[in-house]
Design a protein around this nucleic acid. Structure first.
Length: 950
DNA sequence: CAGTGAGCGAGCTTCCGCTTGACTT
């Protein structure tokens, strides 16, 4: 069933398909769309979907085909040493679907690529062509409207594939890959593993960080004015309210300062000729005005007219769903997806506000029926796209069908009903008449007892014809703002009318820092800056939260300190890449490529390898920035955020943010909003007890014993009085004593932080225990990183139990040391499973459990089980396959460097100079390899420039 | 960000855009 109403082709005999016996296979992007279109095309057509893109560059190592694994650029999936040719693989989750498409094609005598008519859609069509390799005629079918007529017309009027548009898409894709996969590893090295950078997410994060910086730099200013309530009865009011509120606007002709007259630093803007009232001045004036008579000085009337809002596109839908329904961007899209799939609305990922002719008719019919002809403009309204880089592959988001169902008629409920209602109202309202009314500004004057002339102002708005506002009123992000349909009535007044002040009060205000972004307002900002696409807005919000760059506090998006560090690094070292105009410039290039006025390759080369700048100098390319220039990025510096006016530095460490003052460190709660980290707050953090549990006092030393939770788990330690603090009471004694290190010890496995006792702690702190002497050396028992062990000089042996640390005797110790060192406890563990013989080595394969999870080994080669592999389910074949892959991946990992080493001086390991040497060596090797690869001309994708005529 | 002695499988993380199920809990 097609999801649209009134569309079924009962009498559509004329459409009964194509001539000839065979079928045409039509491929669109979305399954829901395929269903609809199948209904319109009828017999002779088989309509299937690609479900979006079907292939892409490999996302991770496991997706790289074996033959490319050795390539130096395989990690990127783009042959940067050659012609920036991307390596495409079918997405793992699309393999079966591509197979299905191939099977369908086998029964077809024609292929119609009916993907969306935009950059991505054109690329999907090209990828389909490349992957399906059809031997039947191929045509490109495009349409902007999903109606029976439009679809049938589109099927008859096909065109060829636009390879220039494909090239523009590919350029975009390659750039995003290079940016993401080259810059992210810089963050892993300099800040923290698993972080990410990208053209879109990094700018989104930067926006949130910059807003927070503004908030942090903000100083509030206080200003006062007067609020009056005037009584108009003396003026002989025949109708309307008798009283109305007004605000003081000037004194003796000089305007009173309001919020917008102040700078973010809390000072008056220099160019403003205004008077700032403080509390005393305001109160004094109020007093001097009490009892005085006022009169109307002027009445200014202006016509008011408001046009309806454009129909929804993705961003505006997300904003309104957030304001009115409290949905997150993701939730809004999920609900919309369900409405779309069930045929209630048109496609929800769009940047277009255009309505099809049939939709305009449907909306107008509904206006006439529900509101009457008075509300219907003579001509349909047309909404031009406000979005600059709109690709217009879809319509606006609107009720589906050629007749709209009213919300009640849908039978929907819950969020689906409410979202549909929103979309329906907005669409209908978009075809209604303007709202018309009148706005009035009244100025009121009075003289104070001190001779000052005070002027008040009151505004009113009346709507004489509500027009579209009757159907739909847009929400506002600012809860204090007046909505469009809000009326404010004033009594009718004319110049010279006497008024009495019923109340007169001084009112204090303070300027406020710019509000944080919400999901919806950030998405709006991104759209205005042409960053991101409708299909990704909700995902962007998800990504920056998942990475820990941003967290939500209510609806506000708050940047983490981590985000500050990452943005700081990017701004200082990759300034161009986080420039807000970067995407806009990219779009210009892509448009030029699509028009055939620019070429992709030179542009990518320049981006990656750099080039000559306007002054004939060298413009640094991305490769150098992440390579040779990498050492210029000081991890400590980029992760440091000095607290202004103090010697405190906030640092972002691997384990979260902490404060550092001359080496004294204290953790900062992860969810502390950066703008709340004032000097005061920092002092509080330094002063606060760190959540330690005091167990008591060591009777021998008199020191307090505390249990703490640390980086390696719970432990106990003793508190050594800081001599500096002790100075106050005791005399400055001999300070010669070097800083004494407190004894520490991890808790045993049987203990917990909550229950550990002083006795336990003292026993732990008695470690290491001297067991006795052997061979003239002390034998000690202690707890270490790998558990309890015995130590004798430089020799050591693990103990079996923690208890043995306290009980082991010298005789037992001697026996333990007599044994050879265990070759690793792991290795001693029996294999989890035993398999057959590996066909290649002939050795028995076993599955073992290692530090990194289960792995299969033949004694020589070890290969981790992949996601999806289960220990019990592994067959001999699978195990052999894993081993073979492992062998192929790293040929002679130890031999290779060993061979190269003699060529270069085997320098000391620790110095940075030595490090550089090795890097250079490695680089030379890769360069050599890649040249060889380029020469042999490894075939990648088929010659795409030839595919698709044009 | 508490400090510590072996000998061992390291390998992966990450981008943006286009689309939905198929999984598991």
């Amino acid at each position: 069933m097609p999801p649209t109403k009134g569309s079924a082709g009962k009498n559509g005999s004329k459409d009964s398909g194509r001539q000839g016996a065979g079928n045409a296979l039509v491929i669109v992007e979305s399954p829901a769309k395929a269903k609809t279109i199948a209904g319109y095309l009828g017999r002779g057509y088989v309509v299937e979907s690609s479900i979006g893109h079907i292939r892409d560059m490999p996302a991770k190592a496991a997706e790289i085909p074996a033959k490319y694994k050795g390539q130096p650029w395989a990690r990127l999936g783009v042959d940067v040493d050659g012609n920036f040719e991307p390596l495409y693989v079918v997405n793992p989750d699309k393999k079966s679907h591509v197979k299905k498409l191939k099977e369908l094609m086998a029964d077809a005598d024609e292929l119609l690529l009916a993907t969306d008519e935009d950059r991505e859609g054109e690329a999907i069509a090209w990828h389909l062509l490349e992957e399906l390799k059809p031997r039947i005629p191929v045509k490109r079918m495009v349409f902007n409207e999903i109606t029976k007529d439009a679809i049938q017309r589109a099927a008859r009027n096909t065109r060829d594939l636009n390879t220039r548009l494909v090239s523009a898409q590919e350029t975009r894709r390659i750039l995003d890959r290079l940016y993401g996969y080259e810059v992210s590893p810089v963050l892993w090295k300099k800040v923290m593993p698993k972080l990410s950078a990208g053209r879109v997410q990094s700018v989104a994060t930067r926006l949130v960080v910059e807003r927070e910086r503004e908030r942090m730099a903000f100083t509030s200013a206080e200003y006062w004015d007067l609020k009056a309530v005037f009584d108009a009865t003396e003026a002989g009011v025949p109708e309307g309210p008798a009283t109305f509120p007004a605000t003081l606007v000037s004194v003796d002709g000089k305007r009173i300062a309001v919020g917008r007259d102040f700078t973010p630093q809390g000072t008056l803007r220099a160019d403003r000729d205004v008077r700032q009232l403080d509390e005393a001045a305001a109160r004094g004036l109020a007093e001097r005005l009490s009892g005085t008579g006022f009169s109307v000085r002027s009445v200014e009337r202006k016509p008011y007219r408001r046009s309806p809002y454009a129909p929804f596109r993705t961003t505006t839908l997300q904003q309104e769903a957030s304001r009115k329904l409290g949905l997150s961007a993701k939730q809004a899209m999920q609900v919309a997806q369900r409405l779309y799939e069930n045929g209630y609305i048109t496609y929800m990922r769009t940047d277009s506000t255009t309505l099809s002719d049939s939709a305009v008719n449907a909306a107008r019919n509904q206006v006439r029926r529900l509101y009457g002809g008075d509300y219907l403009p003579a001509k349909p309204r047309v909404y031009a796209s406000k979005v600059k880089n709109a690709q217009e592959a879809h319509e606006a988001i609107r009720p589906a069908g050629e007749e709209f169902r009213t919300p009640a008629e849908t039978g929907l409920s819950g969020p689906e009903f409410r979202l549909y209602e929103l979309i329906w109202k907005r669409t209908v309202a978009s075809q209604m008449k303007d709202a018309v009314g009148e706005s009035v500004t009244v100025r009121i004057e009075g003289a104070s007892s001190g001779g000052e002339v005070a002027e008040f102002s009151a505004t009113g708005k009346i709507i004489t014809f509500h027009g579209f506002l009757k159907a739909y009123v847009e929400g506002s992000d600012d809860p204090a703002a007046d909505l469009d349909d809000r009326e404010r009535r004033l009594p009718p007044m004319s110049e010279g009318d006497p008024l009495k002040a019923q109340a007169l009060e001084a009112e204090g205000h303070s300027t406020r820092p710019p509000a944080r972004y919400t999901e919806a307002s950030l998405v709006k900002e991104l759209e205005e800056r042409e960053i991101g696409r409708p299909s990704t807005y909700a995902a962007i919000i998800g990504t920056i939260q998942d990475r820990g760059y941003v967290f939500k506090k209510g609806t506000a998006l708050v940047p983490s300190f981590l985000a500050f560090a990452v943005v700081q690094l990017l701004e200082r070292h990759f300034g161009n890449l986080v420039d807000y105009a970067f995407t806009a410039r990219l779009e210009d290039v892509l448009d030029a490529i699509a028009r055939g006025e620019a070429e992709s390759l030179p542009w990518l080369r320049r981006f990656y390898f750099g080039g000559e700048d306007a002054q004939g100098g060298h413009e640094t390319g991305l490769k150098e920035l992440v390579g040779d220039h990498l050492s210029e990025i000081d991890p400590k510096e980029v992760s440091s955020l000095p607290l202004p006016g103090t010697d405190i530095v906030l640092r972002v460490g691997r384990y979260g943010p902490y404060l550092d003052r001359d080496g004294v460190r204290v953790n900062v709660p992860e969810d502390l909003a950066p703008d709340e980290l004032t000097e005061e707050k920092a002092e509080e953090l330094f002063a606060q007890p760190s959540g330690d549990r005091e167990l008591g006092v060591d009777p021998e030393t008199g020191r307090a014993i505390v249990a703490k939770s640390g980086r390696f788990g719970p432990y106990v330690t003793e508190v050594i009085e800081d001599p500096a603090e002790a100075e106050g009471e005791a005399k400055p004694k001999s300070r010669a004593k070097a800083k004494e290190k407190p004894r520490t010890s991890s808790l045993l496995k049987s203990m917990s932080l909550d229950t550990v006792t002083l006795e336990d702690a003292l026993r732990l702190l008695s470690l290491p225990r001297v067991v006795g002497q052997l061979d003239g050396e002390d034998v000690t028992a202690q707890n270490g990183r790998y558990g309890p062990y015995l130590k004798k000089g430089t020799d050591s042996r693990s103990l079996e139990t923690e208890e043995q640390m306290f009980t082991v005797t010298l005789e037992e110790a001697q026996a333990i040391f007599a044994q050879p060192k265990q070759r690793g406890r792991r290795a001693a563990a029996p294999p989890l499973r035993e398999l057959g013989k590996d066909p290649e080595s002939g050795a028995t394969m076993v599955i073992k459990d290692g530090r990194f999870g289960p792995y299969v080994t033949d004694g020589e080669v070890n290969a981790s089980l992949r996601k999806g592999d289960e220990v019990d389910g592994i067959t001999d074949e699978r195990a052999a396959e894993l081993l073979a892959e492992r062998r192929a991946k790293a040929p002679a990992k130890k031999k290779a460097p060993a061979k190269k080493a003699p060529a270069k001086k085997p320098a000391a390991k620790k110095t940075t100079a030595a490090k550089k040497t090795t890097t250079t060596t490695a680089k030379k090797t890769t360069t050599r390899k890649s040249t060889a690869a380029a020469k042999t001309g490894v075939p990648r994708t088929s010659a795409k420039k030839d595919s698709g005529a044009q």
